[in-house]
């Protein structure tokens, strides 16, 4: 913090702004990236379903409600 900045009470340092912005962004991204195995899992589930019925596509999404993490799966049949 420079001399004049100290005198005139300049706002917080750019590094602390960077730190706070990163924390917010990463908290969000980590939640959406919590299941890195997703693609593999999707492929395997698809294989299993194919054995019994005709499947076109699978959509999996994650949601967090307070303390409950929900995995939603939508199976679209042919």
């Amino acid at each position: 913090m420079s001399f004049f900045a100290n005198i005139f009470g300049k706002k917080e340092s750019s590094a602390s702004v960077a730190r706070d912005r990163l924390k917010v962004v990463l908290a969000h991204e980590r939640a959406s990236n919590a299941l890195p195995y997703m693609e593999d899992m999707k492929a395997e589930i698809m294989e299993v379903i194919k054995k019994y019925t005709k499947v076109k596509d699978i959509h999996i999404s994650t949601q967090s409600n307070q303390n409950i993490d929900v995995l939603e799966m939508e199976i679209i049949l042919k």
């Binding site: 590094a15 960077a18 924390k23």
Partner: peptide, 16 residues
């Protein structure tokens, strides 16, 4: 830059 508060410190990066 770190000393001036214009670069993330080592501790900042490790914390994150």
């Amino acid at each position: 830059l770190v000393e001036r508060g214009d670069m993330l410190t080592t501790e900042d990066v490790l914390n994150i």
